[in-house]
């Protein structure tokens, strides 16, 4: 049971600013996701929470208490590693027991605690097996059980499923959501996969080279990005960002004052066959969706259409967009406040 708060935290490594004046709060029981490219500061935040690094300036609070002088061992925060780091020579049960045995906790207490956690995670029936005999999802659950058996205030995961193949990732992230709902514990999760981040998190922070660019629910960030950076980080195919003077191409009559760039998500770009300024240069049929590349005035726009429309490359099309679904950015790439 814990909330985690960063207040104006800065951390430098030599000349590199790994985290720049970060302030945010992770609610109790949240599934909070740190999302950004490599070296954007995600792992630094994890290390600061764990106490493996100390902030240069600013304060970190767990459950309202400052933890600056609390050693990593006493912070009561658990970590699930990227490769899960299960001990291959021990059974699942011994893996789960390990943190308690190491702390010389009385056997009766260990039994009670292990029973409680394994029941919640539904792994009672596989405890006798070594990790090698478990499925990917089961191993994930055993690793989480080992992390949670100490009853930590919060647990952290550093890109835990990036090594799995595409199909398994889709299944495992849903599994993680289920586990999180069952465990009711604060989870801080690091990933560089936007789809995974949006799928699992109920709150997320988008980072760029040490700075937090935006915090909110995945839906809010997707619908109302505060910058072209956040807009481009979320969504596949990527959002189209075109200069303001191309408004005519997408039939936007009047732009808000100061709009230097327009962002249109591929699924919001309407493609009208029967002549127009755009030329279809590529069609990618994905079954459920079809991705079109449309060349217009030297730019390539992506459109994502539902189903399998009957279109040919080379066809001329006109483009339009519902103004309410367009995003407007100033010259610096910051979103204009139009949704007020």
């Amino acid at each position: 049971m814990a909330s985690i708060r960063f207040q104006n935290v800065t951390k430098r490594f030599g000349d590199i600013v790994a985290l720049d004046d970060a302030s945010f709060e992770i609610r109790d029981n949240a599934f909070f996701c740190l999302f950004g490219p490599p070296l954007s500061g995600k792992s630094t935040i994890l290390k600061l929470i764990l106490g493996l690094e100390t902030p240069d300036t600013g304060g970190i609070f767990i459950d309202g208490q400052p933890v600056a002088h609390v050693s990593p061992a006493k912070r009561n925060v658990a970590m699930v590693f990227q490769n899960l780091a299960l001990f291959p020579h021990m059974s699942a049960l011994d893996n789960v027991r390990f943190p308690l045995v190491e702390r010389k906790i009385p056997e009766a207490q260990i039994r009670a605690r292990v029973a409680q956690v394994t029941e919640k995670l539904h792994i009672g029936h596989i405890l006798g097996k070594p990790p090698a005999q478990l499925s990917g999802g089961e191993r994930q659950r055993v690793a989480i059980a080992r992390a949670l058996v100490r009853d930590p205030a919060a647990y952290l995961m550093d890109d835990p499923i990036s090594a799995l193949d595409a199909r398994l990732r889709e299944e495992t992230r849903v599994e993680l959501r289920r586990i999180q709902q069952e465990m009711q514990k604060t989870l801080v999760y690091v990933t560089h996969d936007q789809e995974e981040a949006m799928s699992v998190a109920d709150g997320m922070a988008v980072l760029e080279s040490g700075r937090i660019r935006q915090i909110g629910t995945p839906e809010d960030l997707y619908r109302q990005p505060n910058s072209t950076y956040v807009a481009e980080m979320l969504g596949a195919p990527r959002i189209n960002v075109i200069p303001g003077d191309m408004a005519g191409v997408i039939a936007l009559p009047n732009l808000p004052a100061g709009a230097a760039r327009i962002g249109i998500r591929p699924e919001n770009l309407r493609v009208n066959p029967g002549g127009g300024e755009g030329t279809i240069s590529e069609i990618e049929p994905l079954g459920a969706f079809t991705t079109l590349s449309i060349d217009a005035r030297g730019q390539t726009l992506k459109a994502s259409l539902r189903g399998q429309p009957d279109l040919q490359t080379g066809a001329h099309v006109s483009l339009s967009v519902d103004p309410a679904r367009a995003h407007f950015f100033d010259a610096a790439g910051n979103a204009l406040a139009v949704d007020a």
Partner: peptide, 15 residues
């Protein structure tokens, strides 16, 4: 696009 993923070592902490 960065080179294939390898672990980047943390910069040395002077302290």
């Amino acid at each position: 696009i960065p080179p294939p993923r390898t672990e980047t070592p943390a910069p040395p902490d002077r302290e």
